[in-house]
């Protein structure tokens, strides 16, 4: 039964991605992509990685759909069917690479444990109860730091090339009143609550900064979509500070750790440090994602001439 389930998920993932490439219309490709995200989340569930399944659910259901739809609104030409040309020059290296990967999978011994044991042994030093949070924020802190930096640079790039940086100017009229405002009143507190819940969960269970941040970002995008002015009321200075807060908190941590030891990011082993960095990173991820979505070229912005 397990094997049948895995085979069907795998085959449908391959089939759906083939149809996305071959789709004749943009809209069909978008809906297929949303379905692809759903199936991918099921696949991660089967691979026993609930962290990635939760992240995929949050990004795939919430933000990816909104971004793709806004892109669709900004496009003006129908999609041209992608021509499938398989050149021999490309085919042979691809087949070689695929063979190499298949061989490497066969090469992994049956009882391979990975780095799991090492992480579990070092876990008590971090005072955290969940190994993945420990890896992301402590053992591989550099990676997370630089990822937050990449996100920040992406936001800066988007804010540079879009025509306005006035958040109020991008506000949209509320769609389909009165249900539109009703659903915001109902869902927004729940989104904030569940985002906070995922963040809190990260200390000892699947969840954490990224998942919580994406849900908070969805709450912000929901406000924006419904035309609520409160995002625009936030002072610009606070917006900027919170955008940088994740990167900044890592920087402060790295600098202050120089007083304890001679190396960067070797903080004293307290849970408070790590959780503080995680909370700051959550806010900054949420704000960065909101800025990215608000920077997307939806049709309405163009027409209003802002």
């Amino acid at each position: 039964m397990d094997l049948v389930f895995d085979l069907i998920i795998g085959l449908s993932l391959a089939g759906v991605s083939w149809r996305i490439v071959r789709a004749r219309e943009h809209f069909q490709a978008i809906v297929l992509f949303i379905t692809f995200g759903l199936l991918l989340s099921l696949a991660w569930t089967r691979l026993k990685s609930p962290d990635i399944a939760i992240a995929e659910a949050a990004v795939g259901a919430g933000l990816a759909g909104v971004l793709l739809m806004d892109t669709l609104g900004a496009l003006s030409s129908p999609r041209e069917r992608a021509k499938v040309v398989i050149s021999l020059k490309l085919l042979i290296p691809c087949l070689f690479l695929a063979g190499l990967m298949a061989y490497s999978i066969l090469y992994i011994p049956e009882d391979f444990q990975g780095l799991g044991i090492v992480v579990r042994e070092a876990l008590p030093q971090t005072h955290l109860e969940y190994p993945i949070t420990a890896v992301l924020l402590d053992f591989r802190g550099y990676d997370t730091w630089l990822e937050l930096g990449v996100l920040l640079v992406a936001v800066l790039g988007v804010l540079c090339i879009r025509r306005t940086d006035n958040i109020k100017g991008t506000m949209l009229p509320a769609p389909a009143e009165p249900v539109g405002s009703w659903i915001v009143k109902l869902l927004l507190p729940l989104m904030v609550l569940i985002g906070g819940y995922l963040l809190w969960l990260g200390a000892f269970a699947p969840g954490g900064a990224f998942q919580g941040g994406v849900v908070l970002a969805s709450a912000g995008v929901m406000l924006w979509q419904s035309g609520h002015p409160s995002l625009g009321l936030m002072p610009r200075l606070w917006w900027k500070i919170l955008l940088c807060s994740g990167f900044l908190s890592f920087l402060i941590l790295a600098f202050s750790s120089l007083f304890y030891t001679d190396q960067l990011l070797t903080h004293p082993a307290t849970k408070t440090w790590i959780l503080g960095v995680e909370y700051a990173a959550t806010l900054s991820i949420a704000l960065c994602l909101i800025s990215l979505v608000l920077g997307s070229p939806a049709r309405n912005h163009e027409n209003k001439g802002v």
Partner: peptide, 8 residues
């Protein structure tokens, strides 16, 4: 109708 952004 979308020109003034009011017609959604």
């Amino acid at each position: 109708e979308n020109e003034d952004g009011s017609g959604i």
